[in-house]
Write a protein that binds this DNA or RNA. Structure first.
Ligand SMILES: [Mn+2]
Ligand SMILES: [Mn+2]
Ligand SMILES: [Zn+2]
Ligand SMILES: [Zn+2]
Lengths: 144, 144
DNA sequence: TGGCATATTTAGAATAATTCCAATTAGGAC
DNA sequence: GTCCTAATTGGAATTATTCTAAATATGCCA
């Protein structure tokens, strides 16, 4: 019997074979693990290069496919800044993004407890909000 | 030294020859007027088609050039939703965007008086915010 | 006013992120 | 194992946008 194993029987204990309704193939696992390991909001191409360390044979098309699947199943968020390449974020807690213009680093920022964004806005009464996307650019204070 | 009267260009009375430091060529004027006339956040291509009604000979490259110039001089805002084509907005009052998923219409939403977005967020003390971009998706209540 | 430097416009080519396609490979059920 | 479907793959296609290089317009100054 000569069959190369693409995974799916979950031998290494990292993930179950199915996560959030998504079958965890070897490729999806690699892509997902890349995003869990370094939460620096990499682009698809960043993810591709990092995933290649885990799996030499993975293709860029597959990375795009995996990212799409992970996003659709709610395991990962796709984050866009202006017209730049999309970035990907495995932080599922509600947060917004702060783009530090000095360092280029993208930070996850949470709302203060009890904060209700909609209270700040002149939205017609009864408006149903399904998604909020907030990006802030600026500079963090000097660390000392 | 820029004198108030820029030498008798400005034949059609709509704009002075220079606005916000930007020389108002016939093409820039047409593009800007398109954005002032209908504030429905058109794409560059929408603007191109509308500008052609005013000026048959205008090119798409010029529309992109004009939009860039208008944005750089702060007369127009460039608005991005996900990976969709950029949209352009001549509303200079501070506002955020509400994308009505039922109708596809993009509405300008203002903050309530005195609202301070930064108060809601867990930003490190002393953080300097230079730009905020907020997009909301959802559905407006039924009109009756 | 005409000459000159510079800015702007233009058509079309180039770019780059992303998507699509068609062929292969893998996984799971039986 | 067989069969069916899902996933992967390399490469081509797409598309908004940017770039290029040539033509044109504008502003300035003698
Ligand atoms: Mn990317
Ligand atoms: Mn456009
Ligand atoms: Zn994030
Ligand atoms: Zn707007």
């Amino acid at each position: 019997m000569v069959s190369r194993d693409q995974g799916g029987e979950h031998t290494d204990g990292e993930f179950p074979a199915v996560v959030g309704g998504l079958r965890m193939t070897k490729q999806r696992r690699a892509v997902y693990q890349v995003l869990l390991d370094d939460r620096d909001h990499p682009t698809a191409n960043d993810v591709f290069r990092r995933a290649q360390d885990r799996m030499l044979s993975i293709s860029l098309a597959t990375v795009y496919n995996c990212l799409e699947a992970l996003v659709e199943h709610g395991l990962v968020n796709q984050v866009n800044f202006d017209r730049e390449p999309s970035r990907f974020c495995s932080n599922l807690k509600e947060h917004v993004h702060f783009h530090d213009e000095k360092t280029g680093v993208i930070h996850d920022i949470t709302f203060k407890p009890g904060a209700k964004l909609e209270d700040l806005l002149e939205l017609p009464k009864g408006t149903e909000v399904t998604e909020v996307e907030l990006t802030i650019r600026g500079m963090l204070p000097k660390q000392k």
